[in-house]
Design a protein around this nucleic acid. Structure first.
Length: 731
DNA sequence: AATATTCCCGTTTTT
DNA sequence: CGGGAATATT
């Protein structure tokens, strides 16, 4: 939230800089706004929308596309605050696509009542597809195949095109899986997230008439975060603006952080080529951060080689130094930050203005625990997690089956939830029989298929059929009413009420779901159950973050994009975490990781603290870490380093004979060691477990061993003594 | 058929 | 550590 007062309708331009004004007054023709962090992009975009509505357009002519619902909501609110009517279209790419596919389902070749398959549904189908291709999930991990198919769809590659693109043995097999997966999806009337984009892109590519129609409806199109568009989104943007070319793209190549999702940074870099008459406005003045914060971020991003240089500057004060905290353990890191937050609050900072960012969600737990101990209220950005809970998915699956009976993933989910005597064997028989008859399980159950082979379970299945029939009328109701009806009549309510004796979280979550539906209904009184289901399928983590809650905010660096806080902490600046790497051999895009940290740092208005811990609990054991190389790229003279609870020069007393080397404190990943039998080697990891210290060593002779440091005579040797071992073991 | 137990694996980011 | 799947038990 910007502290300066928002403009009244009289002075749309009064408080704008020259380039900002240029962008606002630009109405017709392509416009690219290259907006550095904190450069007032949202202000420009909203003013421009108001200006358009006042001069050349009606609000309904304007389409603004964002990446998250939160961004859409806030953009809409800010435009409305400028006195522009409510009938603009402001939504995410995915929501727009869902809407278009629903409306033009016949031309798109999708069922009107398609349901959106989330990652879990999708995983299940991919697993099934792999098995039906007679491949083993041991060799073809569903997650990697999933990712591969996702990237293909983001690039608008059909299975055939995918294989042609890379015609090797492996792609041939993945093509088969991809094809099978598509068949399963089609059979079930499901679309996954990528389908929403790809199908829309293909539809627009083929259907000129529709493009014309849409271009007449949306005469002015705004695409936010253009640097994060993938091939399908790019195609959609182009096809929606081909005739009038009234496209306004905003973005910043330095904030491109979704390459792993198929985003193509080239899309923004070639904008001027795509639209030769484009007006380009650069917003390089930063109004958000202190000079010290900005220069630290700027020094970091300068480390990217493939980058267009950009001159970020600010008139703001120097401010206080950026700090780096070095801690012994992740727990100490969390506690130190919690104490520091208390100090900030005592000096008058509002909790609303404080945030903690991390690279991976798993780092949040230790922070949460420290905040609880310290008594600091926090909110955490994880809306999606809520909708992934078992009890929530159970409830939603009932609605999905009612809306789209072909949705077998949902049908199989609810057929025995709560338990009603339809066990695995019966389900398997049903599946096989349906497959043999070439019909869906739903059809088999409802349209009087022959269930006699099921023996005594047939009665149970029949009861289930009756249950579905009783639930069906719920679709006539509003989302919250339908939900309540289904919860009480399906037996879920009784089931979870009984389970509440040991764990009442599921029942409470279900109540919360009903409340969420009621809230949605209040905002969208005409919406159907299907609309609401769609809405729940398209929430993102950051959507759950509310402003002004009186709590600090925890979120991933990805979720932080577009936000700002007075005080920002970024934890876990350790090799392997930030920059992230999976294993030694898997390629990761270090420049994208650097951009990610850049995004995080530039969220801070005044206080920025980066931290790392020397030991961190990862999947159960305490791992030795190495600090992130990114820390060395900061302007060292401007950084305030503090080591809390670490004394690097400390020598352990000789009497301290626990079998560990005296200089253990100095051992890190990469330390060179010598073993009397195996010879020279390099430490690959150190972790502590059950009171022992395990060291994994890659020896120069090629062997790799895990050794217990307490028992093995491993000795540290100096780098200078041994020459170039470093390169030979390849860290 | 349902529940309890163990084991094993993967291990980011997200619409 | 934590979810899911395979396995054991009632």
């Amino acid at each position: 939230m910007r502290s300066r007062a928002e403009a009244t309708s009289e002075d749309l331009f009064a408080d704008l800089s020259k380039p900002q004004r240029e962008a606002v007054v630009h109405t017709d023709g392509p416009l690219l706004i290259l907006a550095g962090p904190g450069s007032g992009k949202t202000r420009v975009v909203t003013r421009r929308a108001a200006h358009l509505a006042r001069t050349v357009a009606r609000p309904s002519d304007i389409l603004a596309i964002t990446f998250t619902n939160k961004a859409a909501r806030e953009m809409r609110e800010r435009i409305e605050a400028l006195g522009v009517g409510e009938d603009m279209t402001v939504c995410t790419f995915h929501a727009l696509c869902a809407k278009l596919l629903r409306q033009y389902h016949d031309r798109a070749g999708v069922p009107r009542n398609f349901t959106i398959f989330d990652r879990e549904d999708r995983r299940k189908l991919i697993k099934q597809a792999i098995e039906e291709c007679d491949l083993s999930t041991d060799n073809w991990s569903p997650s990697s195949v999933d990712h591969e198919i996702s990237l293909a769809k983001n690039d608008m590659l059909t299975p055939q095109a995918y294989q042609e693109w890379a015609p090797t043995w492996r792609e041939e097999e993945i093509r088969r899986i991809y094809e099978k997966y598509e068949k399963l999806l089609a059979k079930m009337g499901g679309l996954d997230f990528d389908d929403l984009l790809m199908r829309t892109a293909v539809l627009l590519e083929r259907d000129q008439e529709l493009c014309d129609e849409l271009e007449d409806r949306y005469r002015y199109v705004l695409i936010d975060e253009y640097q994060d568009t993938n091939a399908a989104q790019y195609k959609i943007a182009r096809r929606l603006t081909e005739k009038r070319r009234n496209i306004c793209a905003t973005g910043d190549p330095d904030q491109s952080i979704y390459g792993w999702r198929g985003a193509n940074i080239e899309n923004i870099l070639r904008f001027e080529h795509d639209y030769p008459s484009a007006k380009v406005v650069r917003l390089e003045q930063n109004y958000r951060s202190t000079r010290r914060v900005l220069s630290a971020a700027d020094a970091l991003i300068a480390g990217n080689v493939s980058r267009k240089e950009k001159a970020l500057w600010t008139d703001n004060d120097d401010g206080v130094s950026v700090r780096v905290f070095e801690l012994e353990t992740a727990k100490a890191e969390a506690e130190t930050i919690a104490h520091d937050i208390t100090r900030q609050v005592q000096s008058g900072v509002s909790l609303n203005e404080i945030a903690v960012f991390y690279r991976v969600n798993s780092l949040s737990r230790v922070i949460e625990e420290a905040l609880l101990r310290e008594g600091i209220a926090y909110q955490i950005a994880r809306g999606v997690e809520f909708y992934n809970r078992k009890e929530i998915k159970d409830v939603l699956a009932y609605l999905r089956v009612l809306v789209n009976p072909a949705d077998e993933v949902s049908l199989l989910r609810v057929i025995n939830t709560p338990p009603r005597g339809i066990g695995a064997t019966t389900v398997q028989r049903l599946t096989e029989q349906a497959k043999a008859a070439g019909q869906s399980i739903y059809d088999l159950i409802t349209s009087g298929g022959d269930l006699s082979k099921l023996g005594r379970s047939a009665g149970r299945v029949d009861e289930f059929r009756e249950l579905l029939a009783r639930l069906a009328p719920a679709l006539e109701r509003s989302a919250p009413d339908a939900l309540k009806f289904v919860i009480s009549h399906s037996g879920l309510q009784a089931h979870y009420a009984q389970a509440a004796e040991t764990d009442d979280a599921p029942a409470r979550n279900i109540d919360e779901l009903v409340m969420a539906a009621a809230e949605y209904h209040a905002d969208h009184p005409d919406a159907t159950v299907l609309d609401w289901l769609e809405h729940t399928a398209l929430v993102s983590d950051v959507d759950s973050v509310r402003n002004g809650t009186g709590a600090i905010t925890l979120m991933t660096l990805h979720a932080a994009k577009g936000l700002e806080f007075a005080v920002v902490y970024i934890v876990g600046l350790e090799r392997g975490i930030l920059p992230f790497r999976r294993t030694e051999e898997v390629y990761s895009d270090e420049e994208e990781e650097r951009r990610l940290l850049f995004v995080g740092m530039t969220r801070a208005k005044a206080h920025l603290t980066l931290s790392h811990a020397r030991y961190r609990m990862l999947r159960g054991s305490s791992e030795r870490t190495t600090r992130s190389p990114f820390l060395d790229e900061l302007p060292q003279d401007q950084i305030e380093w503090s080591q809390v609870g670490i004394s690097p020069a400390r020598r352990r007393p000789a009497s301290d004979s626990d079998g560990l080397p005296d200089d253990i404190e100095e051992w890190t990943i990469g330390t060179l060691v010598e073993h009397p039998v195996y010879g020279l080697g390099q430490v690959m990891s150190i972790h502590r477990s059950a009171g022992l210290t395990y060291v994994s060593v890659q020896f120069k002779n090629g062997s790799r061993r895990s050794l217990v440091l307490e028992f093995v005579p491993l000795r540290r040797v100096d780098f200078d003594d041994v020459g170039d071992v470093h390169g030979s073991v390849g860290i």
